[in-house]
Design a protein around this nucleic acid. Structure first.
Lengths: 329, 329
DNA sequence: GTGGCATTTGTTTACGTAAACATGCTAGCG
DNA sequence: CGCTAGCATGTTTACGTAAACAAATGCCAC
């Protein structure tokens, strides 16, 4: 900066003003400074700027895995919204959600240059008392328990699972089986609870929960088991990938979907409409989740909003061709 | 830091030494400093540290979209590898790969606190003379043209597409149709060229290229058109999603896969083994690509390696149930 | 014509840290 | 016993920037 100032024949402060686009600079001076900048190849030093202003213009995102569809889409939306607001994204992935890993990530993050944090946790781990973010750091949590201290943004898992279950009941199925996500996942738990509640409310005793791990293969394995039970006419899978695995198992055993068995998923991946048959599923608006995360976080950062409270994004049930009334009707 | 020093009764420099884990500190002193740190809740200021050391311990990633399978997997691998090496990831997404957007991203990045950049470009845009990274910034490019100036890491698109095409020819198909990725994509171009070359080499005149956009739906649309041409017995799609769309169109029109038509994809998504039928495809090792990116970038950062040169990651053809000899055989 | 105000530019300072250098102390050796 | 080497610790300084304050100029109203 000093070099630029020397070339342009002005003070460093004036260079700073030009760099920051302040308007109280004579146009001719500004031009001279800009010329000097490009001549020298001046690049502002963000470290120094951050040191001075206390702002980093960056948002940290802690995730357990990028490799699930929902997390990826959420990250995409967060990144897009953050970029539009002039923030960049600092990504801190955690391979295994062990406590040590998480603690490490938070420590790292506290040393990182971020103005706020989005945690895409998918588990109960945040409840642990021994884990804490640096005091005063704005936080928004996605897809996890809501401690009142933190702001939470999430899809309406409950309504989505209820709609999926009801659809199958309304079609005339006597009961609905459920392939859930893993035990540790909070959204899996909520989908399962809502499914259970919907059945109970209808006076139906629920069949045992089939616990999967979100993967296509776990759906396939449960599908192979279900094939042996000819009473099964309707299955609600907690995500589209497991629904796909189920359908593969059914196909391989000559059980037609939806003629013999109806299948409903959750997520509405881009591919789901091209599965065979096209999958009836619960659409999640990941873009809205990401957008709201940034919105809330920025509000916390500029101090215009307290940290607590939950924001729920509605779901939409998309009926395609994997659901039909049971054959006996 | 000054507060910590005061509480511990030492100088700020000693606090700094403790914070950086230097060993030339008396154990008792160290203990006192650590106690003072946790009492005060001291967090090192990364901006000041970066300002002083010139190192940010962060790697920038410029991407056009997170929403393709390959980009997401690559990012995941990059993030994992970077984290293990003690670096965090700064993400800069670009919604539309227009020149202005890209320029803006590079400008932003040059102001960001990064020690190096990975560009996941998927297009020719980098060739533009008017776009340049800050001089001296280490760069690795994935999935794009190789200007000799930059290091490039990429999947062996050519071998993958050749293997896919050859498989179909070896099964006895008289020709192989191709649904390509979008014009602007470099990897799409290479897969198409390799398909074309393989056919030509076998003395077969290639059918017209069907240009898709990676999406399931574009595969579906081309599939609907292909159905009308009963001569088509084999299709190679440039990614798994388009292959899925193709199969949907074939199913809807009672063309059995692979009995009537064989389909091969590219990518080997997790879901592909559960498509109906399970998809024969070309497996890409995205983890290796990500790992190599970071490896090369870190080597550039510590100065142990010049910037040029390409690294190619091999592919593996995975035969599943979407391919078979043509019916006439 | 003079006082006051707005506008542009310059000067000083501090952000939190780590490198470079300086100091003081202890131990080991002849 | 005195000298030096080595180690723990302290002091000074600079990284690049922007806020706060100061100064210089020009303009307007009375």
């Amino acid at each position: 900066m000093a070099d630029v100032a020397a070339v342009a024949g002005v003070s460093a402060q004036t260079v700073s003003r030009v760099a920051n686009g302040l308007n109280n600079v004579e146009p001719s001076t500004k031009e001279r400074v800009l010329a000097a900048m490009s001549q020298i190849g001046y690049r502002p030093n963000s470290a120094a700027r951050a040191l001075k202003t206390g702002r980093f213009n960056s948002i940290g995102v802690i995730m357990f895995t990028l490799s699930t569809f929902g997390n990826m889409r959420t990250l995409d939306a967060i990144a897009t919204a953050a970029t539009q607001a002039g923030y960049s994204i600092t990504l801190i992935p955690i391979a295994l959600p062990t406590q040590g890993q998480l603690l490490g990530a938070f420590t790292r993050l506290s040393e990182q240059a971020v103005d706020g944090v989005v945690v895409i946790a998918e588990s109960h781990i945040l409840d642990r008392a021994d884990i804490s973010l640096p005091t005063g750091m704005p936080v928004v949590i996605v897809d996890s328990d809501a401690d009142d201290t933190y702001a939470v943004v999430d899809t309406d898992q409950t309504a989505g699972a209820r709609d999926a279950t009801r659809l199958l009941l309304d079609l005339g199925h006597r009961t609905v089986w459920h392939v859930s996500g893993p035990e540790a996942s909070y959204s899996a738990a909520r989908r399962r609870d809502s499914w259970l509640h919907t059945l109970t409310e209808a006076g139906i005793e629920a069949p045992p929960v089939l616990v999967g791990d979100w993967s296509t293969n776990s759906g396939y394995q449960h599908g192979l088991a279900l094939v042996k039970n000819r009473d099964v006419t309707a299955v609600f899978a907690a995500n589209d990938q497991m629904a796909l695995g189920l359908m593969r198992a059914f196909h391989e055993n000559d059980l037609a979907v939806p003629e013999h068995i109806s299948v409903v998923g959750f997520d509405d991946m881009e591919e789901s409409s091209s599965f065979w048959p096209p999958l009836t599923t619960v659409h999640q608006d990941f873009s809205a989740v990401g957008r709201l995360c940034i919105e809330q976080l920025l509000a916390q950062i500029d101090g215009s909003r307290p940290s607590g409270g939950a924001t729920i994004v509605p779901t939409v049930l998309i009926e395609r061709q994997s659901t039909a009334p049971p054959r006996s009707l």
